[in-house]
Design a protein around this nucleic acid. Structure first.
Length: 117
DNA sequence: GGTTTGACCATAA
DNA sequence: CTTATGGCCAAAC
């Protein structure tokens, strides 16, 4: 039901699916674009996952918990959103390395692997 | 319906 | 460790 009033949000199907998985990520844990994509059934659609997150509003979906496979925060070039994401994760208890990375192996959320099979 | 793009990932040097 | 290249799939134009 994410923003059904919006014009171009949650309209596409894939987009909505990504949101659903991201919402399943518990607080204090993170996931990667590739994992979310794999959960959808296609580990190659990692780019689409990011694209989907870009289309949603930070109101209802914890997109902040989605980072890249290297454990670092990805952003288009606008460090504003990147810093915002980091602060949100830190507020949830997600530690950051000196290199700006998180212990992905420790906080990686694999619950939707059951969904994939 | 073809072309362009994209918050990525894996591999090679 | 960094830099460069291919690919994959869906959304937007």
């Amino acid at each position: 039901m994410w923003i059904d009033d919006a014009d171009r949000i949650v309209r596409p199907g894939f987009n909505s699916r990504v949101h659903a998985l991201v919402c399943q990520v518990p607080r204090g844990q993170v996931t990667t674009y590739g994992d979310v994509a794999a959960a959808l059934g296609s580990p190659r659609v990692a780019r689409q996952v990011g694209f989907a997150l870009a289309a949603l509003r930070d109101d209802d979906v914890p997109w902040q918990r989605v980072i890249n496979a290297k454990g670092t925060i990805s952003f288009r070039g606008d460090t504003d959103r990147g810093e915002h994401q980091r602060r949100l994760l830190e507020a949830e208890g997600v530690p950051f390395d000196a290199a700006g990375r998180v212990p992905l192996e420790r906080l990686r959320f694999r619950a939707f692997t059951e969904v994939a099979g």
